[in-house]
């Protein structure tokens, strides 16, 4: 289960140290937010997500999870509260800016550009050397399965499928430590979408906001339920199975209600 109030270690630790048993036991926080407020969507929302976690964010109302990811990505401003990513509260490139990638329901790409141009642009904005750009672009194209014939044609000619694959490839170019996915790749067939979203990497932390949790089976190990602007439930996906509940909005809400009742009953027991 993702630990709340995780240690504030940065994740710039050298790779060799990540496999050290002591550090694995510590599970430093990759993303944590404290007392976030934003309009009626977020009300003193707090959570700490450890490095390497794959967390499904489901909310009531549906839009809250997306709003939360947009705040974490720096696209929306919170009224109050603090966000720390990779141990830093500085959202600029000098802080966690280049360690986080965001992929939303709208790609935000200039569809008159080709996928290759878009990926080179992403690489240039990151200040990557030419060789490094080429290496990362090749890897991202291979992962996202962009056909070579379409890679050099404008994105608009390839339709929404190509646009979303290019969006994912552009996010992966940064080799992020934290990947924020807000209803990603909805235009792509379910099996292929699942393959694309099973991004490997022990250091990679993934937060996936979804209005259709059933379609995210196998992509995340944990689920967080945000209701009335606060995190009400953090549970392993297996906990739903053990409670005979489906991985659906209703199932997650029911588990949150059950846990709340258990907590209340526990408090009601006389000393």
């Amino acid at each position: 289960m993702p630990a709340t109030g995780g240690a504030s270690l940065t994740s710039s630790t050298p790779d060799a140290l990540w496999s050290a048993p002591s550090l694995r036991a510590l599970r430093p926080a990759a993303v944590s937010w404290t007392d976030l407020r934003r309009g009626r969507e977020l009300d003193r929302c707090s959570l700490s997500v450890p490095v390497g976690a794959r967390l499904l964010l489901v909310s009531e109302p549906d839009t809250t999870a997306s709003a939360l990811l947009r705040v974490l990505a720096g696209l929306s401003r919170a009224d109050d509260g603090q966000v720390r990513i990779a141990g830093s509260s500085d959202p600029t490139a000098a802080g966690w800016g280049e360690r986080v990638a965001y992929l939303g329901p709208e790609s935000g790409l200039r569809t008159w550009m080709t996928p290759i141009e878009t990926l080179h642009l992403a690489g240039e904005l990151l200040g990557l050397s030419h060789d490094e750009q080429r290496r990362r672009i090749e890897r991202a194209i291979a992962w996202t399965g962009i056909p070579p014939a379409l890679a050099a044609r404008s994105i608009s000619r390839g339709g929404t499928d190509l646009e979303q694959r290019t969006g994912l490839a552009a996010a992966l170019i940064a080799e992020p430590e934290v990947l924020l996915l807000d209803e990603p790749l909805r235009a792509i067939e379910a099996p292929e979408r699942s393959r694309l979203l099973r991004i490997t990497g022990r250091r990679l932390t993934v937060l996936l906001a979804s209005r259709h949790p059933a379609s995210e089976i196998g992509l995340t190990a944990h689920v967080a339920f945000v209701r009335n602007g606060r995190v009400e439930l953090i549970a392993a996906v297996g906990d739903l199975e053990r409670a005979n509940l489906p991985l659906s909005h209703g199932g997650i809400a029911a588990l949150a209600d059950m846990r709340a009742m258990q907590r209340q009953a526990h408090r009601a027991v006389p000393a």
Binding site: G97, A101, S107, G108, A122, L125
Partner: peptide, 14 residues
Amino acid sequence: LLGRAGWLATRSVP
């Protein structure tokens, strides 16, 4: 509106 400014912002462009 099309998220293009957002795309740049999420790549650490101030």
